[in-house]
Design a protein around this nucleic acid. Structure first.
Length: 491
RNA sequence: CGGGAUGUAGCGCAGUCAGGCUAGCGCACUACGUUCGGGACGUAGGGGUCGGGAGUUCGAAUCUCCCCAUCCCGACCA
């Protein structure tokens, strides 16, 4: 396992800090567990955003934006939903400040109390359904396929950089459908889209399935999820897609007239992924030299570094480098030429490794003379000298290779850390000492699930879709079971 | 919210137990010079209300009380 995950390495702070810093307001800090995402970390998020957005639009979705504030009363309308989120809401109670009586500092003006408190959205179902009510009258208004890019706030007891911050960026889709089947299809379409994105863009293999009742989203009929395995053996829920049935439609009275003139409640879904994905990227692929980014999401795919003494050398090297840069860009690559003379080559090498740039080209006087460049790949740290006329093809090929290699490395890791277990002691022992995914039989009851969680901290991550049936006995209760489910300790 | 730990320069830390030189070290930063194919070296510099407030004392980073924040372990969660 990479040392950075245990926070033992010196450079952990350094390269983590390169992406993000934890908000730290100087005095009486109330900004607890919030992130400042620095430009490089944000550039990765922007890549995630643009690729996902493209996929959403391909499947017929459009973007919109809804208010940050949600009246408290909206929350009370769906019973499970309020129960799920009530404990972690930030609440706005006043709308004005005034000068302190003693003339020093400011205080909340007690006269300016809001008649109804506003909740800072922890998720937008309620305000969106309150709005949809007015948008949906007829079957002709359906389906409504809307996504929102936004920030949300959840006042978690305990925060964790990237994985669980008090404020986070995400996308949340909220769709309305005329039929139950269509809504279920939408839920599946999206979880498949997330799976595709995780595996083919992020290079992270995921298990796809649905959640047990106790792990479901508050207010959902069914929750589908993708689960990834991190290098420390813990599972990370990387994306969820919820079939909400008619729960929110009934809570917010969203009805439409169908083709036969009858009034019906709509069927709905919601789904989302967050900046947690950046955390997944870090923990799934990172090594002791820093980040390892999959080419499909790397803000910079190729960095070119000149090695030179003096300006004369730099000029001739730059001419070569810029030519290569434009060739690479012509074949669609994101390229950076770093000719800063304030840092030495060795420093730059280390810096871009820290940032996870997939391929590095180094060009020095020797290369100019021989018509070559040194090509180094981040995932394997291998270097080779390539002649300039072949460089573009070679690097283009490397992008595909690296993308594949990162994925298969993660897949091999997951396979190595996935265990089929039928014995309770072995189950406990594996969870405690090895981590990873455990495929085990479960009797299907919430009681058993709860007991396993209490004794081992392992939860059912997913009940895999398209699971093969198999007769067996519950790992804990010994009662009969028809299929294996996936257990793990999770973030 | 319970148990434990921590808070000193941008980052990482020593000093606190046992109060007392002008509050230190490494990295980073600035200037000049030499360097430049794997995180350069030398010389000279800059940067601190020691998390905040109150108290004890001739004297507080150090002792006492209160508050705030962070990290780890629980409960909660994308």
């Amino acid at each position: 396992m990479a040392d950075f995950l245990t926070k033992k390495e010196d450079n952990y702070a350094q390269w983590y800090n390169d992406l993000v810093i934890k908000a730290d307001m100087a005095e009486n800090s109330a900004v607890r567990g919030c992130m400042v995402i620095k430009p490089y970390g944000y550039a990765i998020w922007e890549k995630v955003q643009s690729e996902l957005d493209r996929l959403f639009k391909q499947s017929g979705h459009v973007n919109a934006y809804f208010p940050l504030f949600i009246p408290k009363s909206f929350f009370a309308k769906e019973a499970d939903h309020v129960e799920g989120f009530a404990k972690e809401c930030a609440v706005v109670t006043h709308y004005r400040l005034r000068n302190n009586k003693d003339g020093r500092g400011i205080e909340v003006d007690p006269e300016a109390r809001l008649e109804e408190e506003l909740i800072i959205r922890p998720t937008s179902e309620t305000i969106i359904w309150n709005t949809y009510k007015n948008w949906i009258q007829s079957y002709r208004d359906l389906p409504l396929l809307i996504n929102q890019w936004a920030n949300v706030v959840r006042w978690e007891m305990r925060t964790r950089l990237f994985l669980r911050t008090a404020e986070f960026l995400w996308q949340e889709g909220h769709t309305a459908h005329a039929t139950k089947n269509e809504a279920i299809e939408e839920t599946k379409t999206i979880i498949n889209l997330y799976e595709h994105f995780a595996q083919d863009f992020m290079g992270i293999p995921v298990l796809k399935g649905y959640k047990s009742d106790s792990e479901k989203f508050a207010g959902a009929v069914d929750t589908y999820a993708i689960e990834a395995l991190m290098q420390d053996g813990k599972a990370l829920q990387a994306g969820t897609s919820h079939f909400l049935g008619q729960n929110f439609a009934k809570a917010f009275d969203v009805r439409f007239t169908d083709k036969s003139g009858e009034l019906q409640y709509v069927w709905s879904t919601s789904w989302g992924v967050s900046t947690r994905l950046i955390g997944a990227l870090i923990m799934a692929h990172g090594d002791n030299n820093g980040l390892v980014l999959p080419p499909n999401l790397a803000p910079v795919q190729v960095v070119i570094i000149p090695i030179y003494k003096g300006n004369t050398q730099l000029d001739s090297i730059s001419a070569t480098a810029l030519k290569i840069k434009s060739e690479l860009e012509k074949s669609g690559l994101r390229v950076k030429y770093d000719d800063r003379d304030t840092h030495k080559p060795g420093f730059k090498f280390a810096e871009y490794e820290l940032k996870g740039v997939p391929v590095r080209l180094a060009i020095g006087p020797r290369d100019v003379e021989n018509g070559t460049a040194e090509v180094a790949r981040r995932d394997t740290m291998e270097k080779e000298v390539i002649s300039l006329d072949k460089v573009t093809d070679h690097v283009t090929g490397l992008m595909t290779d690296i993308q594949k290699n990162i994925f298969s490395k993660s897949l091999a890791f997951r396979d190595k850390n996935t265990f089929r277990i039928d014995d309770w002691d072995e189950f406990r022992n594996t969870i405690e000492n090895k981590g990873g995914f455990i495929l085990a039989h479960w009797d299907g009851t919430a009681e058993t699930e709860e007991k396993i969680k209490n004794e081992t901290k392992a939860t059912i991550r997913v009940i895999p879709l398209d699971n093969e049936t198999e007769d067996g006995k519950c790992i804990y209760s010994g009662k009969p079971s028809k299929q294996r489910v996936v257990f793990a300790r999770a973030y």
